[in-house]
Design a protein around this nucleic acid. Structure first.
Lengths: 205, 205
DNA sequence: CCTGGACACGAGCGACCGCTCGCCTACACT
DNA sequence: AGTGTAGGCGAGCGGTCGCTCGTGTCCAGG
């Protein structure tokens, strides 16, 4: 991966400094929102001078990009891994496992979720979410082609619908301070939606 | 409704000025994004001095709020009206009509949709979307209780799921410059999702 | 001990922002 | 014409921001 750093930190001390800056950046963002996210503020929070910050990050957006990329990578690893772990199950068990795993992944870091989803300004926000969606959608499309050949020729459409739907419901559930349903109810609804789209039986009810 | 204007414009000339400012604000936002949306820039685009702008708007956010509120009002009128217009149909015709009407409404002003969804900064963005969602969800909840009494006790949950899902799919479809499905296919998927959640037959296939 | 260069520092530059306020014009009314 | 006033005007204020660059520090190699 090409680095977005201005100068590659070669010594342990330099790498520690970059890490301190990134951690401080995440802390400022989480605690005070994007409005307070100025480079001077981040440098101060890291106990570092603005000049030092700019030895390693070419500009402010590079710093945001590092945070967003870290989050997207971890999040998509979680989700993709969770889906692949249940590949061998049969529907509707598969759907239920996948829904639960997805919800677990989304719930793991609500602070950064809120930041990436709601705080980052337009362009960065969209880029991060797109990267996450594409990764998850690719995994799902591949799975559908392999394990659900009946829907093969519309696998890309189905993956688009399922990813956007499941993402929206889980994210909003986690971000909602007072959600109108419980975790278990949400999983039920996720199963119902997926079953409806896939044309497989969800709950025999 | 309480006005967010600093001074209520009483004469025709004043009202025309407010309108010019609001129109210019929308134009700047649409053409150059929120980064270029400075009060000086808007005033210049309206052919008006910054001082005049601040005779009617107490601060910058008030101007954004007017734009957002106009959009939310029109959008939610469209959606709620479209839903109520098909109240008498039977599923799955009802679902198909509702899905089509929803898509029509969302497609009506893609420019402002993009602005409210992607450009406005966090807080304003969320407030506008919340207002829209609540309005549509209320209509849907009422409908479900009346016409779908079998699901009455979970009507609020169902409305939450349906509104978020349909909203996400339609909005993303409209904003996506190269969507992976056609309009007709999207309507089909909306019907399938809704049918799955409601537990009614969607397409007899 | 001397020296050179990598690195960290932080005051501050230049630009732009939201917003104000004293001035001036235009018009209603005498 | 004279005059009071509502309202439009725009230079510019106070402040913040992203970012720079001259200076100082520290340490490795001779």
């Amino acid at each position: 991966m090409t680095s977005s750093l201005r100068r590659e930190p070669r010594q342990a001390r330099s790498r520690a400094m970059v890490e301190r800056i990134v951690d401080a950046a995440r802390a400022v963002l989480a605690a005070e929102g994007y409005d307070a996210f100025s480079t001077n503020r981040v440098a101060a929070a890291a106990g570092v001078s603005p000049g030092s910050l700019y030895q390693y990050f070419p500009d402010k957006t590079a710093l945001v990009d590092v945070l967003a990329r870290q989050w997207v990578d971890r999040m998509s690893d979680d989700v993709a891994g969770a889906l692949l772990a249940h590949v061998d199950a049969e529907a509707p068990d598969l759907l239920r496992s996948a829904a639960t795993a997805l919800l677990d992944a989304v719930e793991r870091d609500p602070l950064m979720l809120r930041i990436v989803w709601l705080e980052l300004p337009g362009a960065r926000n969209v880029a991060a979410r797109d990267a996450l969606e594409r990764r998850v959608r690719d995994v799902l499309t591949t799975y559908l082609r392999l394990r659900h050949p009946a829907t093969a020729e519309r696998a890309d459409r189905l993956a688009w619908v399922l990813v956007l739907t499941a993402q929206q419901l889980t994210v909003r559930f986690v971000l909602d301070p007072d959600p109108p349903l419980t975790r278990e109810q949400l999983v039920d609804e996720l199963v119902a939606v997926s079953a409806g789209v896939l044309g497989v039986p969800g709950v025999p009810d």
